[in-house]
Computed example of a mutant assay.
Amino acid sequence: MPRFALLLMAMMLGACSPGDCAQPESIEPRPAGSLTSGDRAALRALDKAYAKAWLVPDAAAREQALMALFAEDAVVYPGHGTSPIDGKQRLRAFWFAEEGQPAAVEFIEHDTLAIEGSIALAAITGHSRIAFFSRGTRVAQEGHYIIHARPDDQGYWKIERMMWNARAPE
């Protein structure tokens, strides 16, 4: 009788539990450190929370909600060849400059396309659409983004790196 059939029969008879029996040769073991369904759900929620934070009506609450999603040493690579922005303080100054009025986001959508990685570092890729008012001008864009996230000391996923491209909608 093939090894797999013997293992299956032993498990059905209660001779061993799935955790106690050797894995059959035809089944690949789960790679150590791969993302669980809970990780994937948390990463999808992080992606949605980023978009949702931009829609918070109160500017101070919007800033707080958005910045809470980033690691202290995060680096953001804005589109259009803008230099990378490193650290939450610089990112805060970029998005919420004291001398200017923060952009008012009319709508933003993030459609998650893929979540890949390990329990130490994951990548979220997707397609985005946004319309916002900046200095009295309405800007509408669509494009793709990638978010690298890692868990913080408490186990919450935080944005470590983020990059996007944007173009006017077709």
Rank of each mutant, 00 (worst) to 15 (best):
E142F: 01
M12S: 14
V75F: 05
H110W: 07
V56Q: 00
P2W: 00
T36F: 01
G38A: 10
F96A: 04
L43R: 02
S83K: 14
I124Q: 00
A103W: 10
Q101C: 08
A120C: 05
T125R: 03
E72F: 00
V75M: 09
K52N: 12
R92Q: 13
G155T: 06
P29Y: 11
S17A: 11
F70C: 04
R129Y: 06
L13K: 15
Q64H: 12
S128C: 12
A93H: 10
L6E: 15
Q89S: 14
Y50F: 15
A103P: 10
I85T: 04
D86E: 14
A15I: 12
T82E: 09
A59S: 11
R62L: 06
K158N: 02
M11F: 05
H80K: 14
L91H: 11
A22K: 12
D73T: 04
F96W: 03
P102H: 03
A123R: 07
I115K: 00
P151E: 04
A59Y: 07
A103K: 09
Y156Q: 15
Q154S: 13
G14D: 04
E106R: 14
P102I: 01
F96V: 00
P29N: 10
D73I: 04
E109V: 13
A10H: 08
H148Q: 12
E170G: 12
Y156G: 10
W164C: 01
E116R: 03
A49S: 13
A149L: 00
M9R: 14
R138K: 15
S83F: 11
V139Q: 06
K52C: 01
E106L: 09
D86Q: 15
T82P: 00
A41N: 11
H127F: 13
L46E: 01
M163S: 13
P84M: 05
A140N: 02
L6T: 12
A120I: 10
E142C: 10
E106F: 04
S83L: 15
W164Q: 02
C16W: 03
A42T: 01
V139A: 02
E106D: 13
L8Q: 14
E109C: 11
P31T: 07
A61V: 05
R40C: 05
A114R: 06
L121M: 14
Q141F: 10
I130N: 09
M162H: 12
S26C: 05
R150N: 00
P24A: 07
L6N: 14
E25P: 04
R40V: 00
K88F: 06
A41P: 01
R135S: 15
A65M: 05
F70I: 03
A71W: 07
A61L: 01
R44P: 03
Q23D: 11
E25G: 08
G143S: 07
P24Y: 09
E99I: 06
P78M: 03
A49P: 06
Y156C: 14
E170Q: 14
E63Y: 10
F94W: 03
V76R: 04
A32P: 10
L43E: 00
L121C: 06
E160C: 13
H127C: 04
R138N: 05
I146L: 08
G117M: 01
L13Y: 13
P151K: 11
R44K: 11
G100F: 11
D152P: 03
Q64E: 14
T125F: 02
R129T: 07
P18R: 01
I130H: 07
P18S: 02
A45P: 08
P18T: 02
R40S: 01
R167G: 11
V56M: 04
C16M: 11
E116N: 05
